[in-house]
Design a protein around this nucleic acid. Structure first.
Lengths: 232, 232
DNA sequence: GTCTATATGTTGATAGAC
DNA sequence: GTCTATCAACATATAGAC
């Protein structure tokens, strides 16, 4: 799978342009790789420098403190991923006009781009997906990074869901998203646990398969808990 | 909410018996607390010793290497949590005899005990739930610890699901569990993200609320993706 | 079982030469 | 921008006295 990016998006990731990669980018690549696999505390600046084939002191020169390097890694692709998903959401709404999309169409518009990204040829994007999952599930980072870069789109999703299911209590919409979010993030983490559990029948590397199942799964789940029940 | 444990289960956690707590237990408590909040690499033995009000050297005396202390923390409550859930599953199956439980009843039997545990009065159990979520979502620990202590019950769940939905392809059952697992674990992590997202409308501390919504959500999702489709 | 003392390595961060 | 050299702080782990 090849991710199609606009010229502006490509420009934001210098590694995609020709010529030798700036060291600053090499550092970000190495940090992204290691942080996504071992978490913030599981990686030392020396390990990053070694993988990037640069000197340790260079990390400090370019990024200052370690925390800041981590945030820069997260920021680098956050805007791109946001733009791709927002465009897909807008397309979904446009196509449904003058009506509204179904719950399944809506969810698909936000989840399918993640499958494209997670199964992209670029290992950087694969690592980044695992990093987002790490951040989302972490206490120290989740509350700082997700609201800034991912929540605006979620707020849009919530509003559309409320329009599609007008009787649904607001809190059930938010909890629905939380449950979906947990499912997505575990899949993006590619922990390898399902491989063992299913004795090889399912592979955590097959993110697209999981996401394609997740779409009807979550659509049915959301509709089930958001529907108006006569006894209430 | 008070967790009801058998005498044997209480014995396995000496802190529940009267008298001064053995230092070994104090260390496990402190380690459980810190590991669940900051992860394995985010905690030093010194921090654990300080919180437990014991000497650092004592950790080594009782547990050897740091990795082993982590595993002991995980093991301590794993068997108890397994037994509680297995009993609930067995009860669920017995009550449905000579037939089978519904998907929703089955899932409820495995998820409701987690709500009891997560909202137990004992902060140790609360921490432990977050620790399980951390382990499940981690690459380094998930594949080692979950198969050993949690997968046997999952295998039983899979078998019952196959009996209830005989036409369901096996891989869809496994993926269903993966999606459910992701949702559960995010809720048990109590990251606080939904509090921000919903501007206080939903609270990640309200694990029971989330789990009670999760039961119909996942039941509907599983049935949706496992049902036989005429066009296939 | 519990402490003191210490060995040995690694960490993040910086100052200064080029 | 990049490297060498170095720092103080902290890490895990152990040996041996009580």
């Amino acid at each position: 799978m090849r991710l199609i990016l606009t010229a502006q998006q490509r420009k934001a990731i210098p590694e995609l342009t020709n010529g030798p990669k700036p060291r600053k980018e090499l550092i970000l690549d190495a940090a992204e790789d290691l942080f996504s696999k071992w978490g913030y505390d599981g990686v030392s600046l020396r390990q990053i420098a070694t993988l990037a084939h640069v000197d340790v002191a260079l990390l400090n020169y370019h990024f200052g403190k370690k925390r800041n390097l981590f945030e820069e890694v997260f920021k680098r692709r956050a805007q791109i991923i946001h733009d791709i998903r927002e465009e897909a959401l807008t397309d979904c709404l446009t196509q449904a006009e003058p009506g509204l999309p179904t719950v399944e169409q809506l969810i698909a518009s936000l989840l399918l781009p993640l499958a494209d990204i997670a199964e992209s040829d670029d290992p950087g994007w694969q690592n980044y997906c695992a990093l987002v999952a790490y951040v989302n599930n972490s206490r120290e980072w989740g509350k700082i990074m997700m609201p800034k870069y991912f929540d605006p789109l979620v707020q849009r999703l919530v509003k559309v869901l409320q329009a599609i299911i007008p009787d649904a209590p607001e809190e059930k919409i938010y909890w629905s998203h939380e449950l979906m979010s947990g499912a997505v993030m575990l899949v993006l983490s590619r922990t390898g646990r399902i491989d063992i559990l299913s004795q090889g029948l399912c592979k955590s590397s097959e993110v697209r398969t999981a996401i394609e199942l997740m779409i009807p799964f979550c659509a049915a789940g959301i509709q089930e808990i958001c529907k108006k029940k006569p006894e209430e």
